[in-house]
Design a binder for these strands. Structure first.
Length: 542
DNA sequence: GTACCTTTGAAGTGA
DNA sequence: TCACTTCAAAGGTAC
C-alpha cells in the first residue's frame, strides 16, 4: 500500500481503517458525539439484548436498573475524563465541544535534584508550580525515547525550564500500572463537592471567565495533592488522599505530573529500584502500581499468580506469596480505554464494560492518526519503562501454565477453524496493530505491515454461548475456557471450534461502518485528507 | 463470590 | 513467518 504522504507524522501503525476526523469533520464528530454515543449505546444494548438468549430485559429496564455512578469511585475516572477533555480541547484547537470541566492547567514540578527520588522527600515546598498549556505533543518521539532511556536526564533538575513542558507527553500523566481506582477521601479544591455533579461526581461548573484558561490551583491546594510518584516518594506531608490501609491508591497522577514526565517516569522506573524492592514495595512501603500482590492476583483455582509459577518450578508457598505479579504494560488501546471509559460512561449512562468496550473499540478506530499516535507512543514508552523497571520480566511470566496451555489439542482443528471462521483474526487487531515492538521502537508508530485486509471495520464476533454449547465454544476469546481446562490439566476439553457466523447474528454495526457519521465523514473529508489517504482507506482496498 | 463479557494490542509459543 | 493464545483494564452481569 503506497504511502502517499511522506510526512514525518505518518508514523502511525494503525492506518488501515483509521478515519481521520479533523477540522470541521472532527468538529462534527464532537458535536455529534453524544448522538453517536447514544447510537453506539443503542447498538450495543440492542445487540446485547438480541444476542443474549437469557436476557429478557429491555433496554429501558436495563437502563433503569442501572445503578447510579458512585461518586467516590468514579471521581478519579471523571478526573481522567476531565483531563481528556482538556487535552482534546487543546489539541483540537478549541473546537472541541464545550467541556464540562475546566482543565488542569498547570503542572507541578517536583524537586528533581535527585532524579531517582529514592531518598529525597518531596515536600510541597520543594515543588514548583508550572503553568502550562495542557497538553502539548510537540516533541518528537525520538526525544522522548531518549529521555526515557536516560536514567539521569540532564533536565531532571529543579531548574527545569518552563519550556520543558513540551517534553511531556500529553497522556503521560495517565500512565499508571495501577488498577486501583483513586478514591479520594476529600476531593481536590477544584472538585469540591459544591461543584461536583451530584450524579456523576463530575464538576460541572463552567470555567470562570475571569480566570485564566490556565487557571492554576493555589500552591497550597496543590501541596495537598500527593506527589505523582507517591509510590516511591516518601510521604512527608499529609497527602490529601491518604493511602488507604488496604493498599496503595494511586494518587491522582494526572494532577501532578511534571513537565518532564517522560524522563521522570523513566527515572521512577529505574532498574535500580528493582532489586531493592522485589515485592513491588518501595522503601516507603508503597507498592509499585504495576505490581500486584499475589494475594490480589489470584487464580481461580486458588493458585497464586503465574509469575511465581513460571519463575520457579516448585517454589514454596511462602516464596510464591513473596513474588509479585508484574502486570503487563498497557497497550495503546488500554491506555485509551482508561482515559475514555469515564467519558463514554458519562455520555451513554452505560455501565456494562463489555458494551462500553465495544463503543471504545469503535471510537478507537475512529480516532485520528494523530490521536492514536499519541497512545501508541505512550504505550511504547510504557513498555520501555516497564522493561527498564523489570528487565527480566516477560509477558510469559503472567501466563498460567502456559506450557501446558500451548499443548491444547485444538491446534489440529485450526485448519477447519480457519475455513469457517472470519477471514480476519479473532479480533482483527492485526490490521490496526502498530509496528512490532522492534519497529515501533525505531518508528514509534510506524505502519504495520499490511496483512490481509479485513472486510469489516470491527471484528466479527458472535455472542459466545457461555458454557452452554461445549461443541461450539467461544469464537472470539476462548481464553477463559481454555484457561480453565488447561489449568486443570484436563485434556478432555473439546477442542476449540468455530462455527460459521450466522449473518443474522452479526451486529449491524459490524456489517457496516461504525456509524453514519463515519460514512459521511469518509465521504466529505476524502478530499480534505488527501495528505493522509491511508487514514481514509477502508478495507475495500483488497 | 467469582467468572464472564468485550475491546485492541503486545508478546510469547509452536509449526 | 504465520497462526494462535494469553494477558492487560474495567465493571456490570450471570451463575
Amino acid at each position: 500500500m503506497p504511502q502517499l504522504n511522506g510526512g514525518g507524522g505518518d508514523d502511525l501503525g494503525a492506518n488501515d481503517e483509521m478515519i481521520s476526523f479533523k477540522d470541521e469533520g472532527e468538529q462534527e464528530e464532537k458535536i455529534s458525539e453524544n448522538v453517536s454515543a447514544e447510537r453506539d449505546l443503542d447498538d450495543v444494548k440492542s445487540s446485547l439484548v438480541n444476542e443474549s438468549e437469557n436476557s429478557s430485559s429491555s433496554d429501558s429496564e436495563q437502563t433503569e436498573r442501572r445503578p447510579q455512578p458512585r461518586p467516590d469511585s468514579e471521581s478519579y475516572e471523571k478526573a481522567r475524563e476531565y483531563f481528556s477533555e482538556a487535552l482534546r480541547r487543546q489539541q483540537d484547537g478549541g473546537f472541541f465541544k464545550s467541556p464540562h470541566y475546566p482543565g488542569y492547567p498547570f503542572l507541578m514540578i517536583p524537586d528533581l535534584a535527585n532524579p531517582y527520588l529514592s531518598s529525597g522527600a518531596l515536600s510541597p515546598s520543594a515543588r514548583t508550580y508550572l503553568q502550562m498549556k495542557w497538553p502539548l505533543l510537540d516533541v518528537p518521539g525520538s526525544a522522548a525515547l531518549k529521555d526515557s532511556r536516560s536514567p539521569t536526564p540532564g533536565h531532571l533538575s529543579n531548574k527545569v525550564p518552563v519550556v520543558q513542558h513540551a517534553h511531556m507527553h500529553p497522556l503521560t500523566p495517565l500512565i499508571t500500572y495501577s488498577n486501583d481506582h483513586f478514591s479520594p477521601a476529600t476531593p481536590p479544591a477544584h472538585l469540591s463537592p459544591e461543584i461536583l455533579d451530584p450524579k456523576t461526581g463530575i464538576p460541572r461548573t463552567p470555567h470562570p471567565p475571569e480566570l485564566s484558561p490556565y487557571y492554576p490551583l493555589s500552591p497550597g491546594a496543590m501541596g495537598q495533592i500527593p506527589h505523582p510518584l507517591g509510590w516511591l516518594v516518601p510521604q512527608q506531608g499529609q497527602p490529601m488522599y491518604s493511602i488507604p490501609p488496604g493498599g496503595f491508591r494511586h494518587p491522582y497522577p494526572a494532577l501532578a505530573m511534571n513537565a518532564s514526565m517522560s524522563s521522570l517516569v523513566s527515572s521512577r522506573f529505574s532498574p535500580h529500584m528493582v532489586p531493592h524492592h522485589p515485592h513491588g514495595l518501595h522503601q516507603t512501603g508503597i507498592p509499585h502500581p504495576a505490581i500486584v500482590s499475589p494475594a490480589i492476583k489470584q487464580e481461580p483455582n486458588g493458585e497464586l499468580s503465574p509469575a511465581s509459577h513460571t519463575k520457579s518450578p516448585a517454589p514454596s508457598k511462602k516464596e510464591d506469596e513473596k513474588k509479585p505479579h508484574i502486570k503487563k504494560p498497557l497497550n495503546a488501546f488500554m491506555l485509551y480505554m482508561k482515559e475514555m471509559r469515564a467519558k463514554v460512561v458519562a455520555e451513554c449512562t452505560l455501565k456494562e464494560s463489555a458494551a462500553i468496550n465495544q463503543i471504545l473499540g469503535r471510537r478507537w478506530h475512529s480516532l485520528s492518526r494523530e490521536e492514536q499516535a499519541k497512545y501508541y507512543e505512550l504505550a511504547r514508552k510504557e513498555r520501555q519503562l516497564h522493561s527498564q523497571l523489570y528487565p527480566g520480566w516477560s509477558a510469559r511470566d503472567n501466563y498460567v501454565n502456559f506450557s501446558t496451555r500451548n499443548k491444547k489439542p485444538c491446534v489440529q482443528y485450526l485448519p477447519q477453524e480457519k475455513m469457517i471462521d472470519s477471514p480476519a483474526s479473532s479480533h482483527g487487531s492485526m490490521l490496526d496493530s502498530p509496528a512490532t515492538p522492534s519497529t515501533a521502537l525505531a518508528s514509534p508508530a510506524a505502519p504495520a505491515p499490511t496483512h490481509s485486509e479485513q472486510a469489516q471495520p470491527l471484528s466479527l464476533t458472535t455472542k459466545p454461548e457461555r458454557h452452554h454449547h461445549p461443541h461450539f465454544p467461544l469464537l472470539s476469546k476462548p481464553s477463559s475456557v481454555s484457561s480453565t481446562s488447561s489449568s486443570s490439566g484436563s485434556q478432555s476439553t473439546p477442542p476449540l471450534l468455530s462455527r460459521p457466523i450466522p449473518f443474522a447474528s452479526l451486529h449491524p454495526s459490524l456489517l457496516s461502518p461504525p456509524s453514519p457519521f463515519h460514512q459521511a465523514a469518509l465521504h466529505s473529508h476524502h478530499a480534505l485528507f488527501q495528505s493522509q489517504p491511508l487514514s481514509l482507506v477502508t478495507k475495500s482496498a483488497d
